[in-house]
Design a protein around this nucleic acid. Structure first.
Lengths: 372, 372
DNA sequence: ACGTGTTACTGACGCGGGTTAGTGCCCCTC
DNA sequence: GAGGGGCACTAACCCGCGTCAGTAACACGT
């Protein structure tokens, strides 16, 4: 009853050639000359039968799975709160699809299963490890065994190419902006525990910028948060109780929203009383209240870069050991000169700014046209 | 030099048995009795060699790819803004991993490539199509050809199981809450164009609830948005210009944040002047200003349910044609009785509520302990 | 001595396609 | 008309594993 899935042998029979010829035509191998007539017959036969080569067979014979892995090593809450994940994934999948690769995604909290199997069973030709942790025992082994691995995020001491945004420079951008506005007592709320390199790098950038401006970087001004808004709320409350900051660099937009709430609860206004700079530029940041000044991460490009680095590595092409993507400061309305340096007029203007002057659209809004 | 990857033949040789026996042991087939001694020798040999069966070979021989596909049919902006995607993916991947399946994710905007190949080449055993569109020509063909497909989101008229949240009931929950508070002129901003079934279902729920309460559901009170906050901003501005609403149901938290901004720009306060109920309960919703009353979607369970439905379908087990997951109203501070029904005291209390009474933590915050 | 089971395993084929080493044929050249 | 050289293909092997049919060895009953 049910007609079997056609194989290349069926195509060969219908076209009146051998299976080998079918293979040559369908993979159009450059070193084999096939006359147009034959090629046409094969193509037509394949079309008529609705032939699609069997992926596993091809992979087995070809030795490549044409599949990339994306390993999410962050905690479930972190993954859930990562507003840029989808963009990064799109970039990676795009890079993959361009060369007929696919992407397997494995959300794999530390200690909860391994991804050895993915590589060792040749289910994937290589993996991008997002959020690598130093305490991951499998990683060094796999690298030592020569599997193509690209780190998204850095992990010093591991001999494997990494792709990341320039966290240090991004943080400097944020702090320099605040210093330029006249702030002198600038706090820092990290985006995550410092075991995460992204967190410590952003903190480094914060410290470097302060040092460069001759400002002290007191440890008291630094509070750790952990990914989500509620930790940002707690961190800001802690910070406010500790020091008279006029500005705070919050190394994650999500955490910054929690920090906003803490300011609110403390009866303080942003930017009037405390300026805030975020990091990431998640899609919602332009609609925070006030619209958040933040450091934009090229999320899509990050995925794209990780993908092509991995594909290069798989193909044996040379890959730079470290690729850093540039960030960009997006100034909105959560930053202003400190109260001492400002006049009352300015404070009001910021609060009542229209959409245009607060840059809510971040360049995306206006061209979309009006609803209805 | 480089030692070849061990095969089952190597294991067989080292254990002094045949390849068949190795296969029996490693797949421990219930119908074949292998004495403990032999089994031990095989296992030990496999361990010593670091043997991992070759996935493609297994798939080819076994006829199954042990891979699921997740097709994201939404527009890139929609995918980027989908704060719940990661959770759903975790659910799906969890269901898959439990039976040693993996998940290939394909972000595939309509008109931008197809996923036929994934199924027809047996690269995946089945797919979950998220955000199916009526104008997708491939879908009915694939269903007709008998491929295991589960829809996440509904698509009437297609004979394939679907898994979704109960959008109608969720919307009713939201509207009933507003009616109970005393609102009579309630607007609706959709989460997306009505071509998306989730959008029209939520609108249906809105209308049904109004009808049930004997309130008119004027078309003028409904404005369409499209996924992102900026469309919510525009939609709310339109709505305010049209009708004297005291409450608005915004069928997406992300869109609701944009609506908040429009209220703000219009000099209106929430909930004092206008109450707002969202939909989705994204992680950030509890930290909006004011914390958003919204309808929670069980995102993780949605992925889990879609995954197990698909796996059932693949295994030939019966699958209900439609699975609806329940939603839950989460009351925070963006809703209050309309001004006419309230006293001044109440309005103040809402604005200055402490974290606990506004339920920012939504049950997650408190148990995490304090930073540092 | 012979059949009947049972246990413990193995030989060989097949999954579907990639690839190498060749083969037959025709045309051209000397 | 013999030799040489493309051209257009093909036979056959290989990838690594699952699996069925089968076999050898031994125990048991009669």
């Amino acid at each position: 009853m049910k007609p079997r899935r056609p194989t290349s042998a069926d195509v060969a029979a219908l076209a009146g050639v051998s299976r080998t010829t079918v293979s040559f035509v369908l993979n159009d191998r450059p070193d084999v000359a096939i006359p147009a007539a034959t090629r046409g017959r094969v193509l037509e036969a394949a079309r008529r039968l609705g032939y699609h080569p069997h992926a596993s067979a091809r992979q087995l014979a070809g030795g490549r799975s044409r599949t990339l892995g994306l390993i999410l090593r962050q905690s479930p809450e972190h993954v859930a709160g990562d507003a840029l994940l989808a963009e990064t994934l799109r970039g990676l999948a795009g890079a993959a699809r361009a060369v007929d690769y696919r992407v397997i995604v494995e959300p794999l909290a530390p200690g909860n299963g391994s991804y050895d199997e993915l590589l060792r069973s040749h289910r994937t030709d290589g993996v991008v490890v997002s959020g690598p942790r130093v305490d991951d025992p499998a990683l060094p082994r796999l690298v030592a065994d020569g599997f193509p691995i690209v780190l998204q995020g850095s992990l010093p001491g591991l001999d494997s190419p990494s792709v990341d945004v320039d966290n240090v420079a991004g943080a400097r951008l944020a702090i320099e902006h605040l210093i330029e506005l006249g702030h002198r007592v600038i706090g820092c709320i990290t985006n995550a525990p410092l075991a995460y390199t992204a967190a410590s790098e952003r903190l480094d950038g914060y410290r470097a910028a302060l040092r460069a401006a001759g400002l002290p970087s007191d440890d008291e001004l630094v509070v750790e948060a952990e990914f989500d808004a509620s930790s940002g709320h707690r961190a800001m409350a802690t910070l406010l109780a500790r020091a008279p900051v006029t500005a705070v660099f919050v190394a994650s937009d999500v955490v910054a929203l929690g920090a906003f709430a803490a300011l609110h609860d403390a009866g303080l206004r942003c930017p009037d009383d405390v300026s805030v700079v975020g990091f990431d530029d998640i899609p919602l940041a332009a609609f925070f209240d006030p619209p958040l000044t933040t450091v934009r991460i090229p999320a899509h490009d990050l995925g794209l870069a990780a993908g092509s680095a991995l594909l290069d590595r798989i193909a044996g092409r040379p890959v730079p050991s470290r690729t850093l993507l540039p960030t960009e400061l997006v100034v909105r309305s959560s930053t202003a000169p400190p109260r001492s340096a400002t006049d009352a007029e300015r404070g009001r203007r910021e609060r009542r700014g229209s959409m245009e002057e607060t840059d809510r659209g971040t360049g995306r809004g206006p061209e979309k046209g009006v609803i209805e």
